[in-house]
Structures are given as structure tokens and as C-alpha cells.
Amino acid sequence: MTVQLIDPPGLPVPGVYRQMAVATGSRTVYLAGQVARTAEGEPVGAGDLAAQTEQAFLNVATALDAAGGTVDDVAKLVLYVVDWSPDKLAALGEGVARASARLGRDLTRPVTLIPVAALAEPDLLIEVDATAVLD
């Protein structure tokens, strides 16, 4: 495995993400932000943060597959969430859990969540930016 996920002693164990990833490998993959669109560009989950999160993470997996990787190779995630508030954490977690179940992989990674006023299109609620390291 090229990415070792660690919650080091002396830092809190957040549960919903990891504190750090130590990556080794010869190729780094920087994905464009992925949103809730099908391969045909059709929107998924209008007004539903959980559904949009699930689709965005599935799109991350599709992109990594094209590079010869999987979500196991993800070292860092940045989530841009429209109008973030703590009450949206459950929906965000639900979307990640559903994508994890569909992919058969744990998507818990180091993550930075950045609240934003809007994304590129008005119906988008989340954009997922990923960096992966492949052998």
C-alpha cells in the first residue's frame, strides 16, 4: 500500500477523518474537483448533500481507476461545501458512508473542509478535490 493512514499519539482521533497520511510511490495524481454529475454530465441529488457527496466520491474513484489507482491511494482530500454548518455533518458522513459501501473501501482520509458561498454551478453543494500517490 502506498498510503499509510495515521492518527498519531498526542492528537485527537476524529473518527470521521484521519490526522495524516504518509505516502510513498512514484506517481502523484492531482484530480480536478469532482462534483455530483454522471458521465453524461447529468446532475445527481438536487438539494441533497448526502447524494451529491456520494456521487462526487464515486467520480473520484472513476478518475483514479483511469490512472491505475483506487481510493486506497488517496493521501489528501479537500471538500468544498456550500453554506457549511455543523448540522450538515450527518449528511456529509452519510454520503461518504454510502460511497464507501458501494466501492467496498474505507474513504476515511486526511481532509480539509472549506466552506464556500457557491460552486461553479448553482445546483452543486459539494466539490471533492483529491491527491493520490501511486506506485
Results as ranks from 00 to 15, higher is better:
L79M: 08
Q55E: 14
T38F: 14
G93A: 07
G104H: 08
I114C: 08
P110W: 07
R37V: 12
D72I: 05
P86Y: 05
A66T: 08
A66Y: 02
K88G: 05
G104P: 01
A97T: 09
Q52V: 06
E42N: 14
R37W: 10
D83M: 03
E54T: 12
A63M: 02
Y80E: 04
G33C: 04
T62W: 08
K88R: 04
A50H: 12
R98C: 12
V111Y: 04
R102L: 06
V74H: 06
A50G: 15
V81D: 09
G104R: 02
T112V: 06
V60S: 14
G45C: 13
L103S: 04
L77V: 03
A61D: 08
A97W: 05
V44M: 05
A50I: 13
V78W: 11
R105I: 07
V111A: 07
T70A: 14
A99E: 03
D87Q: 09
L89P: 00
G45N: 13
V60A: 12
G104D: 08
V60D: 07
D72C: 03
L103Y: 03
G33D: 01
G68M: 02
A101F: 13
L77G: 00
T53K: 04
D48V: 13
K76E: 00
L64E: 13
E54Y: 10
G47M: 08
V82H: 11
E42F: 14
L64R: 08
A67H: 00
D72Q: 01
L58F: 06
A50V: 13
E54N: 12
V71Y: 09
R109M: 04
A91Q: 15
N59I: 02
K76R: 09
G69Y: 08
A99L: 03
R109Y: 05
D65R: 10
V78L: 05
A91D: 13
E40L: 15
S85H: 14
T70C: 05
E40V: 08
P86E: 11
G47T: 11
T62E: 13
G68V: 01
F57M: 04
G69M: 05
T62H: 10
V71E: 14
P86F: 04
V35Y: 10
K88W: 07
V81H: 04
A39H: 09
T62G: 13
A36D: 12
P86V: 00
L79S: 05
V111C: 07
A101L: 14
D73H: 12
T53S: 01
